[in-house]
Write a protein that binds this DNA or RNA. Sequence first.
RNA 1: CGGGGAGUGGCGCAGUCUGGUAGCGCACCCGGCUGGGGGCCGGGCGGUCGCAGGUUCAAAUCCUGUCUCCCCGACCA
Length: 468
Amino acid sequence: MATVLTPQEQDFPRWYQEVIAKSQLAENGPVRGTMVIRPWGYAIWERLEAAIDERIKATGARNAYFPLLIPEAFLRREAEHVEGFSPELAVVTHGGGKTLEEPAVVRPTSETIVNSSFARWISSYRDLPLLINQWANVVRWELRPRLFLRTSEFLWQEGHTAHATREEAHAYALRILDEVYEDAMRQELAIPVYRGRKTEREKFAGAEISWSCEGVMRDGKALQMGTSHELGQNFARAFGIQFSDDEGQLRHVWQTSWGASTRLLGAMIMVHGDDHGLRVPPRLAPTQVIVMTARAGEGVTEAAKTLADDLDRRGIRVQLDDRGELSLGRRIVDHELRGVPLRVELGPRELASGQAVVARRVRGAKETIALGALLERVPQMFDEDQQELLDQATALRDRRTQRAETLEQAKDLAADGFVRIAWPLCGDRGEDQLAKSGISVRCLVRNDGQPVYDADDPGVEALLARAY
RNA sequence: CGGGGAGUGGCGCAGUCUGGUAGCGCACCCGGCUGGGGGCCGGGCGGUCGCAGGUUCAAAUCCUGUCUCCCCGACCA
């Protein structure tokens, strides 16, 4: 078969756009930088969203919803925060046919509006910890948008919490990073990530410490896939969030905030996509099995229906494709492009032999399986292929991660992917220098796997890469 | 804002240098054949060539102005 899509590295952005368009995941919106997520893309997101939501709730957090519009003055209360976001704010100046007395900004993130509520909700140590999450869209006027990866409006979950102590806030921020983000990315998206600490230069505007999960894309570039911030008492002071502790002392709360977005779908495309389009991990696939008829008649359609029903009864997400008006080749390509994990082909030959051809999208291979064994075999194949995707992505990450002994060497190696280098060999000055070549410090890690508390500690390494 | 490039049917493009009936592929519609990996044949719908002005018998093409979009960088989940 002719190759339709070639993820050659120089063509990677183009390939990426094409996969999204051809698999009907999403398209550009009418306002520059906005995005329409089409049903197939959204169905994948819904499953990922549910997986993340479940993990968030397991930490004790509850969902709530806050306003889209924020008084401009709220943003100004935290100096570093407003400085970080000002350039990318969308501002509403008119309402009800009149000029507004005070402009409202469309939320770029909700720390300020959430904390204005927190200030009223919290008065005692008995109100803590307060763990809130919201699923919402936010707007940041991006200069260089790209579908899923960086759009001016995006859909995400943002968590906001308040704690009695710095230690508790710290532990919670890391818990989110590990038990929610890293776990969902590994188990559901089948993408292994580096977890680490952001440098001062890269951290969230308004945070004391930012932690992140960094993914390695097929072309070696980095994608920040989730972040968790320790806000210290910055917002607590700005919004007057105080509580009486168990000794009657009035104290400011310690806070965290954390988020992950539909950008994760971009990661799925850029990590798992291949020559033939998308490969969706079985756990996330809206349709896990497509049952296809080859040549109608002779009881083929009936047999295909029966098989689809049997799979459905086993809780497998299955669809029947018995469209007679399209050629078989066309139909196959459709499902391949969309990344449906398994394709069962059923025709007169199969019926006669009591076997079915099963094509596995992840492996790009076909197998012949006895019809009687199919119901048992399909769930096993899901597990195998989910694991296979993770294995491939892990191999990709490791292959794309090199070690450098000097900053010069690091600069060269970063053309191909991630580079580990001892932090003292880089440092703030090295970071500034690398930035001129389009290379950034994605995060700081320790060679013993522990979180980085002090960048100057021995054994701290920087992970460098070009980033999306 | 700096550096490149492009505006021509729904989408992707050729035609511009050298002015002379606006074309091709895909998609769509009709008819027929055909399903085991983007199938074939025939017919058809659809475009004031980004906009404004100029030169000319004649402008997609030449000249002037203008607008928009895209790519590389800066900003960034």
